[in-house]
Design a protein around this nucleic acid. Structure first.
Lengths: 195, 195
DNA sequence: CTCATCATGTAAGGAGTTACATGATTGG
DNA sequence: CCAATCATGTAACTCCTTACATGATGAG
């Protein structure tokens, strides 16, 4: 149920069409909550049916239309309630550590393959997070700039600090995964040499 | 699709009924892949239909029965294939970092609440992982002992080393989450003092 | 006129959650 | 005989994935 709150977090900055939202999504909140457009459009309809947002049909060219959504008072209240309520942690489902715990059941080469891919995956994630941190420092993320524009200047620092905090956490986690997999690679070598 | 491989990883040690499997599951692989019994029983049936395992009805008492499953040659091959194939990483869906990135939208107290819960959650996870590491060191996990019994002694070290590796990775991640949330708590204080 | 981009979905299916349902056996 | 635990599910629902579908507009 977090998707709708991720969408609300973006829409609170200003009205957007499903299409624009989806574009913004992948550049901001999409780093922490992925959603394909095939999930976003229906969710927006449901949120409208639940009274959290309202859509307005706009003409576009001769026959085209686009539906622009804005957050209602009810939607704003729902967002605040969610922000102040305990998070529900999903049950653990961790394919990488599942596999790591049973690496003795495969060949050293397959184990190395797995670990190298793990490094590559998290290096790419890390790059994204560091890029985002850079955008935060240099105010070069358009979404963030729009957010600051509608925020009282006294709260700018708060807003930026929490963004930094979130992305630094993600970056550190990525570094942890990379370091772990590298230790794993050394372990595979050591065990192969010993066996 | 990892559930069936988690189940296979346990069944490869020896035949088990759905009930026993489910008990073992929560004490071993359940630390990395949660599954409720309402998911395990049907999955076992599906795996049998797919030829990965075979069930044998056993009498129990006067009228009771239990179905004991063992891995088929096909199931063993499927498991090995999975172990040697690239992992599919799920798309990111991280409610905690989603919320962290927008903490300016709630009160300092609600932010502290969230972070304190995060610490508590990961401390409890960390305790579990450290407990499991202890079981590995002292060979006090019955499942692990059974696994070593069917493993050639020359490979015992490998088996133990990978278990250790996996759980140390989990423990470190937990420690990272705790440290991150504690930094967050300090940040909330600092921002409140400044604002 | 054609292609990239704008714009919005549906349909089918898999995976996971929560709640409910039922009965047998064994130890005290 | 009663409670714990053994034993095995079903049903309804939500969420997410993957693939497919369709058409309009604007820039060159």
């Amino acid at each position: 149920m977090s998707l709708r709150y991720a969408l609300l977090a973006i829409l609170r900055v200003g009205p957007l069409s499903g299409y624009d939202l989806q574009k913004q999504f992948s550049q901001s909140v999409g780093h922490v909550w992925h959603a394909p457009d095939s999930q976003i459009y229906p969710e927006l309809r449901k949120m409208e049916a639940d009274g959290l947002i309202e859509g307005e049909e706009q003409v576009r060219g001769a026959r085209g239309t686009r539906r622009v959504y804005h957050v209602t008072a009810e939607g704003d209240a729902a967002y605040r309630t969610w922000m102040a309520s305990p998070l529900d942690y999903q049950r653990v489902r961790d394919p990488a550590h599942l596999r790591a715990a049973y690496l003795e059941n495969t060949t050293p080469d397959a184990a190395r393959d797995f670990l190298n891919r793990h490094v590559a995956y998290w290096e790419s994630e890390l790059e994204q997070f560091e890029g985002e941190l850079n955008h935060i420092e240099h105010l070069s993320n358009p979404m963030l700039v729009r957010r600051l524009e509608i925020t009282p200047p006294a709260e700018h620092e708060r807003t930026l600090a929490y963004k930094r905090f979130a992305y630094e956490g993600l970056a550190e986690r990525a570094r942890g995964e990379i370091a772990w997999a590298r230790r794993g690679l050394k372990l595979v070598d050591r065990l192969e040499a010993a066996g």
